[in-house]
Computed example of a mutant assay.
Amino acid sequence: MLVFQDDGGGMDPEGVRQCMSLGFSTKKSKTTIGQYGNGFKTSTMRLGADAIVFTRAIRGSNVTLSVGLLSYTFLRRTMKDDIVVPVLDFQIQDDHIVPLVYGSQGDWDSSLKIILDWSPFSSMEELLQQFKDIESHGTKVVIYDLWMNDDGLLELDFDDDDEDILLRDQAKATAGTTKIQKEIIEQHISHRLRFSLRAYTSILYLKKYANFQIILRGKVVEHINIAHDLKFKKMFTYKPQVALDSQVSQ
């Protein structure tokens, strides 16, 4: 399993359905990341066959908990013609977690059965247990049935570095270089970000924010401004070339 968790605002029942629906996006700008509404689906499915989402949100006086399952294994083995994404909702009433039924009770029960049959959790109690460490609000994404490479090994390497997650086929990046060149290349962030999740997340944000941090395998990711870490710098002076004929390209 691979677990991603945050303590953000979480998603209400409508939000989690939008997140797990193919092609849905509230981002209208053509230059905005996420405009096609498939980022969550394609990214989780690239890492593993199945993903289950736990999210808790506070909207006004309403506290809701939702569980959603996106399972390639379920769709393939049951030969579904349509993409079925079961979602369960709960709400807090008098400090108790109670089911929140939007459609029919039959639909709610059917979603529960699918999730219990095709997720790592075998009871509703086990599902609700996953909210214990989310606290008042936030989201947890559990990706399981991770993909293997051609050698039958996990594509992701969890063993070589206890504080990192690596792409297993990392050695190919320096093939054909001398030993000295290889040492120089491997020490630089521009090489490590190709296969190291810690290196990649360290340069993900240009600015360092006081109220935000990424924790990977129990250790905080140190922020790196990649613009300050350029190893081989060159400066080129641009000289515009005027066309020989009377027509100048714009």
Rank of each mutant, 00 (worst) to 15 (best):
D117G: 00
L2G: 01
V63C: 09
S66G: 10
L244C: 03
I114E: 00
Q5C: 10
L204G: 07
S21D: 08
G176V: 11
K239Y: 03
D164R: 02
G10K: 07
L216C: 09
L47I: 11
L154K: 03
I214N: 00
R76F: 15
F212A: 13
K231Y: 00
V85S: 04
V141H: 02
L116E: 01
R56W: 08
N149M: 01
T42H: 06
K239N: 09
A199L: 05
N62V: 13
K132T: 03
A199Y: 06
V67W: 02
D95N: 14
Q93M: 15
F54H: 04
L127P: 07
L22Q: 08
L206F: 11
L22Y: 12
K239C: 06
N211M: 10
G15A: 13
Y205M: 15
S249A: 15
T42S: 13
A227I: 07
I114H: 01
S246C: 06
D150Q: 06
K207A: 13
K182G: 14
N211S: 14
Q170L: 08
A210N: 13
K113P: 06
A175S: 10
I58P: 04
N211C: 11
S202G: 05
S122L: 11
G138S: 00
S123K: 00
V242Y: 10
D169V: 01
I165S: 04
P240R: 12
I83K: 09
P240W: 02
G152P: 03
F74S: 09
E183R: 14
L88Q: 04
L70Y: 12
G9V: 11
D89Q: 14
F131H: 03
Y72C: 03
G8F: 14
M20C: 12
M124D: 03
D145S: 03
P13T: 06
L22K: 10
G48L: 05
S246H: 08
A243V: 06
N225C: 11
G176W: 08
P240F: 00
Q105H: 07
D6Y: 02
F40K: 07
M1G: 01
I165L: 01
D162P: 09
K140W: 01
M20F: 07
D94M: 07
T64K: 12
I224V: 10
V84G: 11
G37H: 07
R76I: 15
A227G: 09
V248N: 05
R168L: 05
H223W: 06
T178H: 15
M124H: 00
W118G: 00
D82I: 10
N149C: 05
T55S: 15
K30L: 15
M124Q: 09
Q129M: 05
S61W: 00
P86Q: 14
